[in-house]
């Protein structure tokens, strides 16, 4: 469980996060959505301490993160896994070494045991035959998956994913979404995902926060989001006319104006 109270962050006078309160529960996919530049990445980086917030409180399972000593922070961070927007793989290491790195650093297992774990997580993210490749030699989507594999290799309690499926084809994107959802449920992880992909929102959004210019504009679940009356949110999710039409259709259907088993040909006549 991660709790945020009154979080503020600015850069050289320009406010980026302007007082965000939120609660992220374990075993749920917590989504942060919002248009490009709305402060999603900055919010996430504040939560993990890569940026120091200007004011506000962050609590990890009741522990105050902002006031923590360096050593305590280091201990806590061993329970955090993070996927960066640009993957951030170590480019001097092979895929296998990248994923094994946290194991090398924080466990005392022997090589074969570590290798077993590495292959296990690689399989989890549907990657094969890439162990000995360098990050420069694999595609962007594969990098993302290796990034996820590295983030979950130590069985984290908290998982942060910054746009896990931007730049991926729809199939792989859904695969990654499902994967994130599965491991969240399986290990009861508190998962935070930054995204502006509507597919993921509908697919895995147990709890969604909509950010608009540094403010939490809307909060709810994927069941509620399509029927929300929030103008800004509506503009954001129904940016395409196709989706807007689909929504209108669905609403008519809900109100009983159209039969669920409608015959489209007849309706369009």
């Amino acid at each position: 469980m991660i709790e945020v109270k009154g979080l503020k962050k600015g850069f050289s006078g320009k406010t980026v996060i302007n007082g965000v309160d939120a609660k992220f529960e374990p075993g749920k996919c917590n989504l942060i959505i919002g248009s490009s530049g709305s402060g999603k990445t900055v919010l996430m980086k504040c939560l993990v301490g890569l940026f120091e917030p200007d004011s506000g409180e962050i609590c990890y399972s009741g522990q105050d993160f902002t006031g923590m000593t360096k050593e305590d922070r280091k201990m806590l961070r061993q329970q955090i896994g993070m996927l960066f927007q640009g993957s951030a793989l170590f480019d001097s290491m092979t895929v296998e070494q990248n994923i094994m790195f946290p194991l090398d650093m924080f466990t005392h297992d022997n090589y074969s045991k570590k290798l077993l774990r590495v292959n296990q997580v690689l399989e989890r993210v549907n990657l094969k035959d890439v162990n000995k490749k360098f990050p420069a030699e694999i595609s962007g989507g594969m990098k993302k998956r290796v990034g996820i594999a590295r983030a979950i290799v130590l069985n984290p309690k908290y998982l942060f994913c910054d746009e896990p499926n931007s730049g991926l084809d729809p199939q792989t994107a859904i695969l990654i979404d499902k994967l994130i959802k599965e491991i969240t449920l399986e290990y009861n992880i508190t998962t935070l995902v930054n995204t502006h992909d509507m597919n993921s929102v509908m697919e895995i959004g147990d709890h969604i926060i909509y950010m608009y210019q540094g403010i939490k504009e809307w909060e709810g679940s994927n069941k509620e989001i399509i029927f929300s009356k929030n103008k800004l949110l509506n503009d954001f999710i129904f940016a395409s006319e196709f989706l807007q039409d689909a929504k209108d259709m669905r609403q008519l259907e809900m109100r009983g104006k159209i039969d669920n088993n409608r015959n489209m040909d007849e309706l369009l006549k």
């Binding site: 980086k45 993990v48 890569l50 360096k70 922070r73 280091k74 201990m75 806590l76 961070r77 061993q78 955090i80 896994g81 993070m82 960066f84 927007q85 640009g86 951030a88 793989l89 170590f90 480019d91 790195f101 946290p102 650093m105 924080f106």
Partner: peptide, 13 residues
């Protein structure tokens, strides 16, 4: 390329 951030997140000084 945020590799330093990635190390930092793992809890490495």
């Amino acid at each position: 390329s945020e590799q330093i951030d990635a190390l930092e997140i793992m809890g490495i000084n």
